[in-house]
């Protein structure tokens, strides 16, 4: 009997994801990802300015700006949530805009502010974690995302 109930529950969850109509009703948070690259542009007066462009291609050393936008477009608050962004391996972390993130330097096992973490080298040596060690970035929200509220999370990285 218990087995059947569990099975039914699972089916209901699957249906919620698979059936477009149901999913639409449940989709009360929208999420988008944008990646920009900093390009130095020379202006007609000879001065240079740094512009953000949406690149098709980049080269090692390019500075990238990752923007994750979220908005509660539904009719109920989304409670107690967090955003996690595993860093692409070709990108070295270069900080966030607000510094409220926690990070991981071991693939998402241990979390904390960078200053509290240590990095274990291949030879077993332990040293304070560096920005370049970061593998994951996470923002923990300690309040509910109310209906209609939105925001964006920004972090910077450099193409390795």
């Amino acid at each position: 009997m218990m087995m059947k109930i569990n099975l039914l529950k699972r089916l209901a969850i699957l249906a919620a994801v698979a059936i477009p109509g149901t999913a639409l009703a449940a989709n009360n948070v929208s999420l988008s990802s944008d990646v920009f690259v900093e390009r130095t542009v020379e202006k007609p007066d000879g001065k240079t300015a740094v512009m953000l462009e949406e690149p098709k291609t980049v080269i090692p050393g390019d500075n990238l700006v990752f923007v994750v936008k979220y908005k509660n477009v539904g009719s109920t608050p989304a409670t107690d949530f967090s955003v996690t962004n595993p860093l692409p391996k070709a990108v070295a972390f270069n900080g966030t805009s607000d510094g409220t993130e926690i990070v991981s330097v071991d693939g998402g096992k241990k979390w904390g502010s960078l200053a509290t973490l240590t990095y274990t080298r291949e030879n077993g040596e332990v040293r304070p974690a560096l920005m370049s060690d970061v593998t994951h970035i996470k923002w923990k929200f300690n309040r509910a995302l109310s209906v209609g509220s939105e925001g964006k999370l920004v972090f910077r990285g450099t193409v390795k």
């Binding site: 209901a12 969850i13 919620a16 994801v17 149901t22 999913a23 009703a25 449940a26 989709n27 009360n28 948070v29 929208s30 999420l31 988008s32 990802s33 944008d34 990646v35 690259v37 690149p55 098709k56 291609t57 980049v58 080269i59 090692p60 990238l64 990752f66 994750v68 979220y70 539904g74 009719s75 109920t76 989304a78 409670t79 949530f81 955003v83 962004n85 692409p88 070709a90 990108v91 995302l145 193409v159």
Partner: peptide, 28 residues
């Protein structure tokens, strides 16, 4: 370099997982 944001949250009828657009950038 592929970047896809993924969201999972509690909606009115339980947990939902959604994917954002995928941004693809090629390394020259």
């Amino acid at each position: 370099i592929l970047n896809t944001a993924q969201a999972s949250y509690d909606g009115p009828s339980g947990p939902v997982v959604i994917d954002s657009n995928t941004v693809t950038i090629k390394v020259d």
